[in-house]
């Protein structure tokens, strides 16, 4: 780990000012991602601004849903009765994440900011456009079993590691951000950006922007939601493929549908084609199978990860059967 300075922020403004004054400064909260990457030499901050004392831990019901403070711990959010009842997909994704210890450390805001597990990104001896722009993407013709089958580019085919973000995508979560120009909101779907030709850029945040909260709008679909995580090991592993499905079925017809995928793209991935194949249709096995097929549209494997495309189809179908009460 490189040498760095450390400051504990008592308030958001001074934390943001500290980052504004130093382009190599970074926030630290749970530390589970940034400390890990610092040990690998991937992150080399000059200054760590400890934001854990900022009053952003609350999990509060609002008129329209639930507002989760950015510093709320993953375990606390998973345990919150309103989350478990109104957003089961979120609670399930959290409990399928990492380990109990890590969930006691990691925060909701930090989880959205976590960086890819791509082995080439983590290994500073290897070529990686995200870590060292212009060096090439070694994963495209390398060890890529865990890599993206959609949303990548010739510059980067990494996968986003978060379970939570996939679940949040399926409930139309909104990220609250405090920046130089004040507060703003960003729908989660527009929060992460695809690598394109700039894989080093992962979110819409500017340096120094601070996530303050994530807002979860209440909906009938969110209440009827489910997270399916497929992995080699029974626990404590990142997803090979995951599916967050939320469905509102009334009178046998699908009134609202959200399908989000994890482990398949450089960002949490919204399967719009699958949703379109569901909306307005009867909640039947045939509909779900067609939607599962649609979810794989445009997916492309790179060898070791070819299987993910079949797995996506199967997993989406399974998740839809679960929320569609066909099982």
């Amino acid at each position: 780990m490189n040498a760095f300075r450390y400051a504990q922020a008592r308030d958001a403004a001074s934390a943001m000012a500290a980052l504004a004054a130093d382009p190599r400064a970074r926030y630290i909260a749970g530390g589970t991602n940034v400390v890990d990457l610092m040990k690998e030499g991937v992150e080399r901050p000059s200054l760590l601004v400890d934001i854990t004392q900022l009053p952003l831990r609350g999990i509060d019901r609002t008129a329209t849903g639930v507002r989760v403070g950015a510093l709320a711990l993953m375990s606390d959010v998973a345990d919150h009765p309103a989350i478990a009842r109104d957003y089961p997909v979120v609670a399930q994704a959290l409990l399928a994440s990492a380990s109990p210890q890590l969930r006691n450390m990691a925060t909701i805001g930090g989880n959205l900011m976590q960086r890819t597990r791509c082995a080439y990104f983590r290994d500073v001896s290897q070529h990686c456009n995200k870590r060292a722009p212009g060096t090439g993407c070694a994963a495209i013709s390398g060890v890529n079993r865990r890599h993206a089958v959609v949303g990548g580019s010739e510059q980067c085919i990494c996968t986003h590691a978060s379970d939570l973000a996939v679940a949040l995508l399926s409930v139309d979560a909104i990220v609250h951000v405090r920046g130089r120009a004040g507060e703003r909101t960003v729908p989660l779907e527009r929060f992460h950006v695809l690598p394109g030709s700039t894989p080093q850029r992962e979110t819409v945040l500017e340096h120094g922007d601070l996530i303050t909260a994530v807002e979860l709008p209440a909906s009938a679909a969110a209440r009827n939601s489910y997270y399916l995580k497929v992995r080699d090991r029974a626990s404590y592993e990142f997803a090979l493929v995951s599916v967050a499905a939320a469905l509102n079925v009334a009178g046998g017809r699908i009134r609202a549908a959200r399908v989000a995928l994890g482990g398949v793209a450089p960002t949490p991935w919204r399967a719009h084609a699958a949703e379109a194949a569901l909306l307005g249709r009867p909640a039947t096995g045939g509909t779900f199978a067609a939607a599962a097929e649609a979810a794989t549209r445009g997916m492309k494997g790179y060898g070791q990860n070819d299987f993910k495309i079949v797995l996506v189809r199967r997993a989406v179908n399974r998740a839809l059967q679960h929320v569609g009460a066909i099982a």
Partner: peptide, 25 residues
């Protein structure tokens, strides 16, 4: 253990990529 065959470099050199059983397994 997976190697990058171009370089001979091991690309699963940690316990998140080289999987051993956990309690739930």
């Amino acid at each position: 253990t997976r190697y990058d065959e171009r370089s001979g470099r091991i690309m699963t050199a940690n316990l998140a990529e080289y999987l051993v059983p956990v309690n739930a397994d």
